[in-house]
Design a protein around this nucleic acid. Structure first.
Ligand SMILES: [Zn+2]
Ligand SMILES: [Zn+2]
Ligand SMILES: [Zn+2]
Ligand SMILES: [Zn+2]
Lengths: 150, 150
DNA sequence: CTCTAGTTGCAACTCAGTCTCAATTATGAT
DNA sequence: ATCATAATTGAGACTGAGTTGCAACTAGAG
């Protein structure tokens, strides 16, 4: 099912309305590749003439998340980033403390162990965050890797 | 090596001073069991007559972390918690969205895979965060597990 | 004891995100 | 198409966690 349709369906199912703002947001969110934050999105929307307020953005990103179209990535110190999830599957992140770059990794094995741990502890998992911090190849070379954990 | 000594050593190595405030903080931090946040600590210190300002706390928790005596646990939405690490080894967390309880788990296997992933991507890991969100045994029972991801 | 770099408390400030509310608008029913 | 109503919006005030500038204080080396 195309993303726009999926979104429309989600909205009507929850008695939410398909507003101009939501349409603009959806469109932009689907076209970004990579990880983005609220300000990226706001700037992007502004540039193309769609005026969407910051409040509206903050109100609707969770809706996009709930509908499964994007995913929220919680970075250190509560900075949230998002990424399109249409046509992609779950993965986790490595964040470079040098250049801020975000690499992705996936490990079915880790996911399996998580499930196993939850089963053993009678814990019902609804989500998880798994982030590796450090320095990417290019940053690790030039002394920057000496930096301490932030 | 006893914790206090380790701390003293760390301080002198970095030309930092062993102040009254740091001593009080150290003492309290070592006596707490479980996970705590800044306000817990502040209240606790207040109760025992040690007046330590919030700013000083915020300035010194990273010092404790650097010296390896405590560990910072970044929760969702940037709320930081800490835990004593003296005489304990690395573990990760499961956070109950119902009651806020924090369970711990450890998996050498997961740690190994992480290392492996980093090696493969030429990424120098300095730390990682691995958190499972969901509902603990008692909360999962009573409808609360229906709650959405927060 | 003296000197100095490190430390402290306070209050002002930042930053991300949330909330309030009056005005606007999508949508289902007539 | 028109209406009624509940959802939505933008602006700006507000929140909470954490940071910062600064003047007064103090640990610790010499
Ligand atoms: Zn994962
Ligand atoms: Zn990603
Ligand atoms: Zn781990
Ligand atoms: Zn723990």
């Amino acid at each position: 099912m195309p993303a726009a349709e999926r979104f429309a369906l989600y909205l009507s199912k929850h008695r939410l309305k398909m507003t101009r703002e939501r349409r603009a947001l959806l469109e932009h969110v689907l076209s970004v590749r990579g990880h983005f934050d609220v300000d990226d999105l706001l700037r992007r929307l502004g540039r193309t003439g769609h005026r969407v307020s910051r409040a509206t953005l903050y109100r609707n990103l969770p809706v996009l998340v709930e509908s499964g179209l994007i995913h929220k990535v919680e970075m250190a110190r509560g900075q949230a980033r998002y990424e399109r999830m249409v046509g992609r599957h779950h993965h986790d992140h490595m964040v470079c403390l040098g250049c801020g770059d975000i690499l992705e990794f996936e490990s079915p094995e880790v996911e399996r162990i998580q499930e196993e741990v939850c089963r053993r502890k009678r814990f019902v998992m609804t989500g998880h965050t798994h982030q590796i911090r450090g320095y990417c190849g290019s940053c690790a070379g030039d002394g920057r890797a000496r930096g301490k954990e932030r």
